[in-house]
Design a protein around this nucleic acid. Sequence first.
DNA 1: CTTTTTCATTAAACATGTTTAATAAATAAA
DNA 2: TTTATTTATTAAACATGTTTAATGAAAAAG
Lengths: 197, 197
Amino acid sequence: MTRRDDSKAETRELILNSARSLFWEKGPDKCSVRDIAKEAGVSPASIIVHFKNKTALLEVALYEEIEKTLGKALASLPSDQGLQAVLMHIVSIILPFYDKNRELYRVLIRDTFFEPIQESPSLAQLDENFIQFIVTLINQEKKMGNFRSDIDSHLAASSLFYLYLGVLRNFLRNPNFRVAEAVDTLSKILNLHLAGI
Amino acid sequence: MTRRDDSKAETRELILNSARSLFWEKGPDKCSVRDIAKEAGVSPASIIVHFKNKTALLEVALYEEIEKTLGKALASLPSDQGLQAVLMHIVSIILPFYDKNRELYRVLIRDTFFEPIQESPSLAQLDENFIQFIVTLINQEKKMGNFRSDIDSHLAASSLFYLYLGVLRNFLRNPNFRVAEAVDTLSKILNLHLAGI
DNA sequence: CTTTTTCATTAAACATGTTTAATAAATAAA
DNA sequence: TTTATTTATTAAACATGTTTAATGAAAAAG
């Protein structure tokens, strides 16, 4: 760590703090890079040099809390319960988390959802981890004889994830869609698809 | 139709033709409103006045062909086949259609997917129609005793649609994901979820 | 210690979607 | 026919994300 690196890291933190504050309060669409720069006491160019673009800054600014929340959800799993209960437990933590500032997370997901994975690698990794976690759950259920053993675990996990994303989309784009409704909807959908239609 | 309305409609068509041409050839992200305006021989402001914003122009420019394609798919259904075969028939037409210019449709869907429904009402209507169509298929299968009669048809249809969207997302964001692979993946996913996991 | 090189920072410029205010021509009113 | 009003159009301005070129200070080389 040279003196230069220190100062660079300091600038980075200044930007991140201002970004978190303004993104949270005004929403990413309603605050400009110039606003954040002014609040942080740096130039707009500096923000782009540090983070490449506004969306990447948003991702870095929000990533840590999302990951922490997911971590907490995984650490507080209901033991010896089935796949569905475990998934619903996680969703029951994630959706209220997003609900604390739905517009904020809507913009984050909107701006990364259809972009190449390498543009938002940490978010993509989070999703991939989640899917992998579902895979292990499915494999457990297979071993206990609850699920057919001939199914492709990763495919099954991916598609359960797609069902979650479908509900999440409605949740994020429709402010009237309440957390409890979303959770309930997903629960019913999981029922449907675990038992077969 | 007054003379004013005629000229307005003419301007609209000029804009739409130029937009279709440039969107298709350069991609929506790589051609500006000014480019389209110049090609159409109108002012950039005129485009915004006519279509409200660039994304809305994109939607209007592409809607008709999408709807036509979906219509053709529905008109050429394999008769007396099950839900899965019918869905795969439709997907086998839609994905090759998007594949003719994947980047173009990727941008369209990216820019509307998480926006309020009223921002892209015709696309939303298309989706809703598709879901309703699946509902009727499910109800048929129920009558024939192939599906459990206690399931919520609309919920089941929605979730099948979510599975499609999950695959579509991968298809659009990953240029290496080939049509045949996507179709195959979705087929396997449908197997999984119709039979139960 | 001096010189050279690296690099964090930024002012200014640029690209582009959109808004605003003005204009002129078509339509409606008199 | 004359006057008033509506409205399609646009030039100019604006907002904002991003790029470029310049600068100065820190680090490395001599």
